[in-house]
Amino acid sequence: MSDIKLVDVTKQYEGQPQPAVDAVSLDIAAGELVVFVGPSGCGKTTTMKMINRLIEPTSGQILLGGADVMSIEPNELRRHIGYVIQQIGLFPHMTISENIQLVPGLLGWNRDRSRRRADELLDLVGLDPAAYRDRYPRQLSGGQQQRVGVARALAADPPVMLMDEPFGATDPITRERLQKEFLRLQAELRKTIVFVTHDFDEAVKLGDRIAVLKERSRVAQYDTPARILAAPADDYVASFAGSATAIKRLALIPAVRLPGEPLDERDGLPVLERGGSARDALDLMVRRGTSRVAVGDRTVDFAMICALLEDEHGR
């Protein structure tokens, strides 16, 4: 299917003393959103771009749904991988709709189908097609442009998306809104997504799993946000995750991601509203004087959350 497998992937740029990406191996399951996070220059972009062959690896193998990407014609490959970058890169001489229709057109869809698809996607990213389809990129705000960027990447319904700091250039409020919409979108679409950021909070908020990268793109830890927060693999990860804002971080972790036990309806526990974070769960416990709350079809308990915090403080 559309899982991604990196096997000992190395990239040595011409004339650089060290490889930018050094023997990286990583498995990304189909339908999973994996965030690459790490300091500037650690090789996140390079690693990501080797997946759609914008950069050719020096050695190693990248498998997409089991097939070696090097065996696929690069343009053909790219037409089936959504690609979103921080600078957005909408084509200013094409309308919003034409921008979205471009890849379907290259894939030979007929006009009507592409056009309907563009409208559908504008709707999906929260832009009214009637109002926006015939506008030009310069007539949109930065946040709106970024939504179009996402819609354009989704145009041919690619199973895989690569996103390089897509929300990096937006102001904090817009970014937060885009992140929320993006999560909602992903819950619906279940694409396999590689998402690059150097903002750890963003990684925690969005990722099913996070790959914390250090220099030369070496994987320091590859795990769920909760477990990375709870049990950083080493000092590097710990310092990167930061500890001072442990409580605050709880607000980033969706409560559904916390380990929990199956819910017994008879307990009559207070029920956390949908989309609540670990912090909200803690809040609810304190207000209701209980040590357990219901999250969906499971329960989360106080000790579990404290363990999260303790782990952080214990270091």
């Binding site: 759609n52 914008l54 690069p74 343009n75 053909e76 490959l77 790219r78 037409r79 089936h80 690609y83 970058i85 600078q87 957005i88 890169g89 909408l90 084509f91 200013p92 471009l102 890849v103 290259l106 354009r152 690569l162």
Partner: peptide
């Protein structure tokens, strides 16, 4: 032409 536009085009699979 903005390099970001060229990168987008390449990333989308335009020859």
């Amino acid at each position: 032409v903005d390099p970001a536009i060229l990168e987008s085009a390449r990333g989308m699979g335009l020859t």
